[in-house]
Simulated scan of single mutants.
Amino acid sequence: MSQSFILRNEERGHDLIKSDGSRSSYIAGHPDGFVTRASSFNFHEYQGGRPGFGTIRVFGDEVFHGAGCGYNMHPHHNFAICAFVFGGQLTHVNTAGEGMVDQLRAGDYYVFSAGSGGKHSELSITTEDMQAIYLWVMPEQLYLPPAYHRGHFDFRRRRNEIVMLVGDGDGALPIPQDLRVSRLIADRGRSFRYAPRTASHGAYVFVREGRIGCAGEELGYRDSMGLSGVAAVDIDILDDDSDILIVETIMIDEANIKTWESEHAGH
């Protein structure tokens, strides 16, 4: 049975978080700096208009405003976290393996699988605002060893094609879940079809820039749509330079999700 929903940009959770008071231990930077966050789903302090979709718990675009702004070192466990950078520079310090310091710019992205436990810090240390989309995914197996992988999307060479960034495709970054993240930058008048792997998989389609027709509905800037139980998702590009992210996820029982969330409230 097919199911779908549309989430308009204005229906998402929109937050401005300053580095002051009790938040200063988590939000890095001068008190004049701040993080803006627009969240598609409702997970603890990540507020949005609806619960998660499949294994997705968090999907939000964030901007770090001000040099030194971001998140101080903090722990995670049993989460796979992805960040896709679209502007500025993200300095990412993490403890996976022997630990590393990574610097990511537009087109770069990472998968940090916290597994049995890991810490990381994410900072914008330049004066340019850092823009990224964050995706948090429930892992398929708990307490795996922490791991970190990073990649780059070359929008000049991979235009007008659906490119898998995360998942089990050639050149994609691995993630401990039945999930794939693809990106499409396309020109007006083009049409594409995305086919989920099985009827048990759903697709979350997010319009970062531009305007598209998706499954017979028009989606604009920061609008999104979730579909499950469909054989394919048809996407028509209505504006030049439209930039779309597609997250394909196995659909899981909502009761299992609630049990998992109550056991992992500290994420």
Rank of each mutant, 00 (worst) to 15 (best):
Asp168His: 10
Ala172Gln: 04
Asn160His: 10
Phe155Asp: 10
Gly151Asn: 10
Leu179Ser: 05
Leu184Arg: 04
Arg156Tyr: 14
Leu179Tyr: 09
Leu179Ala: 07
Ala186Glu: 14
Asp154His: 08
Pro174Asn: 13
Leu179Arg: 00
Arg158Ala: 10
Arg150Ser: 15
Pro196Glu: 05
Thr198Asn: 11
Ala195Pro: 00
Arg183Pro: 01
Pro174Met: 09
Ile185Val: 15
Val163Pro: 00
Val181Cys: 14
Arg150Met: 14
Leu165Lys: 01
Leu179Lys: 00
Pro146Lys: 03
Gly171Ile: 06
Arg180Ala: 13
Tyr194Arg: 12
Asp170Val: 12
Pro196Met: 03
Val166Leu: 08
Gly171Phe: 03
Ala147Met: 11
Phe192Met: 11
Gly167Ile: 04
Val181Gly: 00
Asp187Thr: 07
Asp154Ser: 07
Pro176Asn: 07
Leu144Ala: 13
Pro196Asp: 10
Phe155Arg: 15
Arg180Cys: 08
Leu165Glu: 01
Gly171Val: 02
Asp170Met: 10
Gly151Trp: 06
Arg183His: 13
Pro145Arg: 03
Phe192Ser: 05
Pro145Asp: 15
Arg183Thr: 05
Leu173Arg: 10
Glu161Trp: 05
Tyr148Thr: 11
Ser182Arg: 06
Leu165Pro: 00
Arg190Ser: 14
Arg183Ala: 11
Leu165Gln: 09
Leu179Glu: 07
Gly167Leu: 07
Glu161Gly: 00
Arg159Asp: 03
Arg158Tyr: 04
Ser182Met: 10
Val166Gly: 06
Leu184Gln: 02
Ser200His: 09
Gly189Gln: 06
Gly167Trp: 02
Ser182Gly: 03
Met164Leu: 07
Thr198Lys: 13
Ala147Glu: 12
Tyr194Gly: 04
Arg193Lys: 11
Leu173Ala: 06
Asn160Val: 01
Arg157Gln: 14
Gly169Ile: 00
Ser191Gly: 14
Thr198Ile: 01
Gly169Cys: 07
Tyr148Ile: 08
Pro176Lys: 02
Gly171Ala: 14
Gly169Arg: 09
Leu173Phe: 08
Ala147Gly: 12
Arg150Phe: 06
Pro145Ala: 11
Asp154Lys: 11
Gln177Asn: 08
Gly171Pro: 01
Gln177Ala: 15
Gln177Phe: 13
Ala199Val: 09
Asn160Asp: 15
Ser182Phe: 04
Gly189Leu: 15
Pro176Leu: 06
Glu161Thr: 05
Arg183Gly: 08
His152Glu: 13
Leu165Thr: 01
His149Phe: 15
Ile175Ser: 11
Arg190Gln: 12
Phe192Cys: 09
Ser200Asn: 12
Arg156Val: 04
Asp187Ile: 00
Phe192Val: 02
Leu144Gln: 13
Arg156Phe: 08
Asp168Ile: 01
Ile162Arg: 06
Ser191Glu: 15
Ala199Phe: 11
Leu144Asp: 13
